[in-house]
Amino acid sequence: MRTSLPVLPSRLRKIAALAATVAAGAAIWPAQAATDNVASCKGTIYLTFDTGSQSHADYIAQTLKKHHIKATFFLANEKTIHGDYTLDPAWAPYWKSRVAEGHAFGTHTFDHVYVQRDLPDGRIEVKPQFGAQAGKKEVWTAAQYCSELQRVADRFTELTGAKLDHLWRAPGGKLTPQLLAAGRACGYSHVAWAEAGFSGDELPSDKWPNAMLLQKALQKLKDGDIVMAHLGIWSRKDPWAPAVLEPLISGLEQKGYCFATLRDHPAYQAALSKQQTAVIK
């Protein structure tokens, strides 16, 4: 015998209808909240991360994902705590995941090449930290430096299938007039960081404890500032990221700040948009 469903009393029907309304509202809340959050931003902070020992690469990625934050990564082929290098095939899944999450990416020179000085003949003296010429001073032309920037872009595409953004950060942030001109000549915009945006994650932790670095950042960061940290530093005994990153993000969010990649930074947005259009064409 077929049993019919009971008819709900009027009061229960009203409760059921209210629950359905709440559920429907909850379904659209995240998108609406995100829109409201952007509209109510006091300002925007641009988090950037350079490759390094990669000791906290996973933690940083998980923290950004937890807070729904997009950042910008600058890549060099650096030795990691696993004994491999950051642009080895073993790191392809890591970089592919960051691409899928919507982060931006720039070149940090393939062999983490430090500039030494400009030479009178227009060439540049450099010193790679990694690679076949690690620790040796070399003299490069502007074209050779451009090739070094492009090596990262080519490897990134091999690993992820995605294109590198035309952003560049010189190791140590060190520039010379001829080096800056070389980067511009091959279409890369150099990205430094704000004074308040220097995370201090490579400083000795006994002299610069994490609590001090966190307090400094929360007090001094302002709208438009670029923050620079690493995916791991060999030398710092008390690591920066696990102690500082999440409270820094939470503190800035509480002050009304939002976060974005450098694709949305006023200083780089127009140039990157033109480059993206050129790639599509």
Results as ranks from 00 to 15, higher is better:
His108Pro: 02
Asp238Trp: 00
Lys79Cys: 06
Met228Asp: 05
Ala192Thr: 09
Ala61Met: 13
Lys174Ile: 14
Lys79Asp: 06
His68Ser: 15
Leu164Arg: 01
Leu262Lys: 04
Ala39Trp: 09
Thr3Tyr: 13
Gln116Asp: 12
Val227Thr: 02
Ala162Met: 08
Asp111Gly: 04
Lys174Asp: 11
Trp168Ser: 05
Pro209Arg: 02
Tyr188Trp: 06
Leu180Phe: 08
Thr86Gly: 07
Ala192Glu: 07
Asp225Lys: 10
Gln276Tyr: 04
Ala162Gln: 06
Ala270Asn: 15
Pro120Met: 10
Ala39Asn: 11
Glu158Ile: 12
Ser189Pro: 04
Trp29Asn: 11
Lys237Cys: 09
Gln276Val: 05
Lys96Glu: 07
Pro120Phe: 14
Pro89Tyr: 08
Cys186Lys: 05
Lys281Leu: 09
Gly232Tyr: 03
Lys79His: 11
His112Asn: 06
Pro209Glu: 10
Glu138Ile: 04
Gly256Asn: 13
Lys216Asp: 12
Leu159His: 03
Cys186Ile: 08
His190Cys: 11
Glu148Ser: 07
Val126Asp: 00
Asp84Pro: 00
Lys96Gly: 04
Leu245Trp: 02
Asp121Glu: 07
Phe74Ala: 01
Ala243Thr: 07
Gly172Ser: 06
Trp240Tyr: 15
Leu252Phe: 09
Arg2Asp: 15
Ala196Ile: 04
Val191Lys: 00
Glu148Val: 03
Lys65Cys: 10
Met212Pro: 02
Val126Ile: 11
Lys222Val: 14
Ser250Tyr: 01
Thr261Gln: 04
Ala24Pro: 09
Trp240Ala: 01
Ala92Pro: 10
Val227Ser: 01
Arg155Asp: 00
Gln62Glu: 15
Ala271Leu: 08
Ala134Val: 04
Ile28Gln: 15
Asp36Arg: 13
Ala211Ser: 12
Ala260Gly: 10
Asp154Trp: 12
Trp208Gly: 01
Ile233Phe: 07
His56Val: 12
Thr176Met: 05
His166Phe: 06
Ala217Ser: 09
Ala17Gly: 11
Ser273Asn: 14
Gln254Ile: 03
Ser205Glu: 01
Ser189Asn: 10
Gly224Ile: 11
Pro204Asp: 08
Tyr46His: 06
Gly102Phe: 13
Arg236Tyr: 07
Ile124Gln: 02
Pro128Val: 09
